[in-house]
Design a protein around this nucleic acid. Structure first.
Length: 467
RNA sequence: GACCCUAUCGUCUAGAGGCCUAGGACAAUACCCUUUCACGGUAUGAACCCGGGUUCGAAUCCCGGUGGGGUCGCCA
């Protein structure tokens, strides 16, 4: 049984890298008829917030990444962690360490000065029966001891990473890390192991930044006698500029993509294709993705985010999107700008007219805005396009439109007759008409615009400009 | 600095020793379509990091260098 999990820490929004990790974990479970679990890693009380939890939930929800179990919260599993720590202390796979933070800092400082890898020197690590006897100092008063894991001193830790292949590291590189703080609260590397064990996680799919945690976690699994999950580490996503993404630089919430007018299916497709491939396939549904998804076609190196390709995918999905859905989305976006578009009942037809030519939902909303409410064209546009000959032609056209059948072919004919009568070419009238009707010189085919806008609005808008 | 990972067009990638004169997509450029702007269509330019091996044969396997990334917390 395949069981995967997404385990974010609620210290900020769900960003694009986290979203891709979630997507791949989710897809792997879906691919194999397994279970996808959401677990909130909130043991850092100082930085975790309920708002961040909600932001993550919202992001997952918007993307449609549904989970079968959870969300579990680590803070609610304290008793379990403490129980395991007691067991480890009793078994001798963990021990109390009275080194103060100041001492640790001094230790690391000295090591760095010697160009060594900074790490705990094991001063409170008790000797084992088969080791030379070591006399520990008396526990100093007033210091609450942390609990450290007794990492094996020799040998190698190795695993076959599902995306990177075999990775091995010498135990000598690993120090005895803290699994419980002085106040008794457990730390990340420990909680993850207990959770992955208890939740029977079969495949841990997570970011590259956890590669160095994996050998430590494997050692805890072994100390606990627990079965090991499989591990797959996804490479990082770099920003558009090739720089690493961070809270300060380039990392944005997935919900910001929603705000910027991206369709979730476009973001999903883009993310799926960033670091994963299925031959030359570029556009595919999540159903197809889940049917195809395997870990063996994931790229092992970091990938640079490319907004232009995302834009292209968004335009692609916009063209295919259902008009009623787009109209609903447009209404919501207009409302955010304080515009009530509900008076314009033909919104789906506006969507049909524009969805093939815009890059995002906000542009669609901007287009719809001009249909719902008569916008005042910029004075320069009026001056440039509404010359006296044009005004005369518009008067003729307006008269013709009064009793023409309100369908594109008839409207087109009315325009062409007007053109003939005034010795004008199509653009000479169509462009000013666009300015008059929509406030800007570009639009879809003018007859289609007239048809969707409706007789009443067209006449009203022409009349107002001619007055 | 140490350790771990990584390296194909500007970007995302295909590529599992001969199918490679290295394919696709985005972006770029040109042309076509056209009722404006887009959309769309067609075409063009554009890459195997470097050096050694292994092999009849290497983008592909091995080693080294270099570049990039990650980690080195009583953060997650």
């Amino acid at each position: 049984m395949i069981r995967t999990r997404f385990a974010p820490s609620p210290t900020g929004f769900l960003h694009i890298g986290g979203a891709r990790t979630a997507l791949f974990s989710w897809a792997y479970a879906r691919r194999h008829g397994g279970t996808f679990i959401l677990r909130i890693e909130d043991t850092d009380v100082a930085r975790s917030t309920p708002e961040a939890v909600q932001a993550i939930l919202d992001g997952m929800d918007w993307l449609g990444l549904d989970y079968d179990e959870g969300p579990y919260y680590q803070m609610q599993r304290m008793d379990r962690y403490k129980e395991v720590i007691r067991q480890m202390l009793a078994a001798g796979t963990a021990y109390l360490c009275y080194t103060s933070p100041e001492e640790l800092e001094a230790m690391r400082e000295a090591q760095r000065a010697r160009n060594e890898k900074p790490r705990y020197d094991g001063r409170w690590r008790p000797s084992l029966a088969n080791e030379p006897v070591k006399v520990l100092p008396d526990p100093p008063a007033g210091i609450l001891p942390a609990v450290r894991f007794r990492n094996p001193a020799d040998g190698m830790v190795a695993w076959n990473d599902l995306v990177k292949g075999r990775i091995s590291i010498a135990n000598a590189e690993l120090d005895d890390f803290v699994i419980a703080r002085g106040d008794g609260t457990p730390t990340y590397n420990f909680c993850v192991v207990v959770d992955d064990w208890d939740m029977k996680i079969s495949h841990v799919i997570r970011g590259d930044d956890h590669v160095n945690n994996t050998p430590r976690q494997i050692n805890i699994f072994k100390a606990l006698g627990a079965p090991l999950p499989h591990y797959g580490h996804l490479s990082m996503i770099l920003g558009d500029d090739g720089q690493k993404l961070s809270k300060r630089h380039g990392a944005v919430s997935v919900m910001q993509y929603e705000e910027e007018g991206y369709l979730p299916e476009a973001v999903l497709n883009y993310l799926a294709r960033l670091g994963w491939s299925h031959g030359d396939d570029e556009t595919f549904s999540m159903e197809q993705f889940c049917a195809w998804f395997e870990l063996d076609h994931i790229t092992a190196s970091a990938a640079q985010f490319n907004t232009e390709k995302l834009n292209w995918l968004n335009a692609h999905y916009l063209k295919q999107a259902d008009d009623a859905r787009l109209a609903e989305e447009t209404l919501r976006r207009l409302a955010r700008q304080g515009v009530d578009g509900r008076g314009f009942t033909d919104l789906p037809r506006v969507m049909a007219l524009y969805k093939g030519r815009v890059a995002n939902l906000n542009e669609l909303a901007d287009a719809a805005h001009a249909f719902c409410i008569a916008l005042h064209p910029a004075p320069e546009l009026v001056q440039l396009h509404l010359t006296e000959p044009v005004r005369a032609a518009l008067r003729t056209l307006s008269a013709k439109l009064a009793d023409v059948a309100w369908e594109a072919p008839a409207l087109s004919l009315a325009i062409k007759e007007t053109l003939a009568g005034h010795a004008m070419k199509m653009p000479q009238l169509a462009i000013p008409l666009r300015v008059v009707l929509l406030g800007q010189p570009q639009s879809p085919a003018i007859d289609a615009v007239l048809e969707v806008l409706g007789r009443e609005r067209v006449q009203e808008r022409i009349g107002r400009l001619l007055a």
